[in-house]
């Protein structure tokens, strides 16, 4: 039996991916991938720990065959937003190990 390629590849680490996105020129923020109201447990953790980064991260999900990387970012008004968004997507694409069938969704939610 041929194993699923995604089972052989290393899992994508959300914290590592998030850290890489923060290094992209023009990125000012990484936001929770869903409206905060739906993230109440994580929000409570963030309040208790004082660590909003527990909320703000790349979201990695999989249906077994395809991995979806989703992120909401804020961008700098001093850099062209389409270019920044493209750099974020390219950074995430470059982070996908061989053997992963993945999609990347980047939403810019704030320019400041």
């Amino acid at each position: 039996m041929t194993p699923n390629a995604n089972e052989d590849a290393q899992p994508l680490d959300e914290d590592l991916l998030t850290a890489r996105v923060y290094t992209v020129d023009g990125v000012t923020d990484v936001f929770p991938p869903a409206p905060t109201l739906t993230l109440i447990p994580q929000a409570l953790t963030a309040i208790v720990t004082g660590s909003p980064k527990r909320l703000n991260r790349v979201n990695v999900s999989t249906d077994g065959a395809t991995t979806a990387l989703t992120i909401r970012v804020g961008t700098s008004i001093d850099a062209a937003t389409p270019d920044t968004a493209k750099r974020v997507a390219d950074t995430l694409l470059d982070s996908i190990p061989d053997g992963h069938d993945a999609t990347v969704t980047v939403q810019v939610s704030r320019i400041a």
Binding site: A85, K86, A89, L93, Q107, S109
Partner: peptide, 15 residues
Amino acid sequence: LPHPDKRVDLSLTEG
């Protein structure tokens, strides 16, 4: 927003 790779979906919110 444009991106040449069809695996990528880039967008900007109206807000």
